[in-house]
């Protein structure tokens, strides 16, 4: 990968609206064929960044290179990217076939080629037999497939997707995610996908870029952003995490009376130790090691159960996820227990 030129390269890109800075100094290389997700809460700047990639928003600062050429101020029409919008943005007065054929007609492809390509795309997204219907005659999921087929019909080098699944219910979402992964693998197009759903981001992407308050927080593969988040925001945004105040003395950190020896000494600014709920373990009742906690609630979630705890030393709340089968009946609210975790699972902020 490293020998290839990036499909898109952003260099210190920023966007201001008047005095408000929507995005500041984002730099990243998007490699050909990758599935990059831009993840963040609303107002984090992820959509602004996508719109600048698309050419729909003007760039205030920085440079944008596409295939090595400066395209910072090129208009959307000349970039040749595919785009999928929230709410599908299909042409309501055209049939499914006409919708998919539209970008091909814009490119003045020969009629026979357009016909073949439209048929191929309809097959690819599983809509055979619906070609003559109008969008209003299709379900949400089917409209979504038409939008995908239309965006990919003219084989754009890059497909930009702006929260395309936000209007779909959970089951349909899962189906469309599988479909998108399959189509990405088959077409080899570069996908840049915007979402605020962290599980969607982790499930789909080859890399995830996490935005908050107009800044790029971390850009890495899904395992790294989840297991080794670079900031407390990233750690808390990607699923649940227990954040405990700690005192550090070289590599030794103390949470109340419980001490953990870290693989290496943390930075001087470190104040907290954080652990994911599934990395915590209940210590045997006889054990004298572990952080003493009182169970405040027990929540049954099927295969897993969640215990809500309160640290005896300072009252910090904790949650721990445990296989329901492994949980003793004694683990009821009011009981005192001890929890522990492996030093390597500690995150320091």
């Amino acid at each position: 990968m490293s020998a290839r030129k990036p499909a898109i390269e952003a260099i210190d890109i920023g966007k201001d609206y008047g005095t408000f800075t929507a995005l500041s100094d984002v730099s990243m290389k998007i490699m050909p064929g990758e599935f990059l997700t831009l993840l963040g809460p609303s107002g984090s700047g992820k959509t602004t960044f996508l719109m600048m990639l698309a050419g729909f928003e003007a760039v205030t600062r920085g440079f944008l290179k596409i295939n090595g050429f400066d395209k910072t101020h090129a208009d959307a029409e000349s970039r040749g990217f595919g785009m999928m919008f929230q709410g599908y943005a299909l042409f309501p007065h055209m049939t499914v076939e006409q919708n998919i054929a539209f970008p091909l007609k814009v490119q003045k492809r020969p009629k026979s080629e357009i016909r073949d390509r439209v048929t191929d795309m309809i097959d690819l997204v599983g809509l055979s037999g619906h070609g003559h219907k109008r969008p209003s005659g299709l379900s949400g999921g089917q409209q979504q497939r038409v939008a995908l087929a239309r965006a990919l019909a003219y084989e754009p080098p890059v497909l930009l997707l702006d929260e395309p699944f936000s209007a779909l219910d959970k089951n349909l979402r899962g189906q469309m995610q599988d479909e998108l992964r399959r189509i990405h693998a088959k077409m080899g197009t570069t996908f840049v996908f915007v979402t605020h759903d962290q599980s969607e981001a982790l499930a789909l992407s080859s890399r995830v870029a996490i935005f908050d308050q107009g800044k790029l927080q971390q850009l890495a593969d899904p395992t790294t952003v989840y297991e080794r988040p670079s900031t407390r925001f990233v750690a808390e945004f990607l699923g649940d995490i227990n954040v405990l105040p700690a005192i550090f003395d070289g590599p030794v950190s103390k949470v109340g009376d419980f001490s953990v020896t870290l693989p290496e000494a943390p930075a001087a600014s470190a104040r907290h130790i954080a652990v994911r709920p599934e990395k915590l373990a209940l210590q045997p009742e006889s054990s004298q090691i572990g952080l003493p906690c009182v169970i405040t609630d027990r929540i049954y979630m099927g295969a897993q159960s969640r215990l809500q705890l309160s640290s005896v030393a300072d009252g910090s709340p904790l949650v721990i996820d445990i296989k329901t089968a492994d949980l003793s009946s004694a683990a009821e609210p009011g009981h005192q227990i001890r929890v522990g975790w492996a030093a390597k699972d500690s995150l320091i902020f």
Partner: peptide, 11 residues
């Protein structure tokens, strides 16, 4: 967004 979509396709 429909208009944006058409613009993005180079129309």
């Amino acid at each position: 967004r429909v208009i944006l979509a058409a613009r993005g396709m180079g129309a």
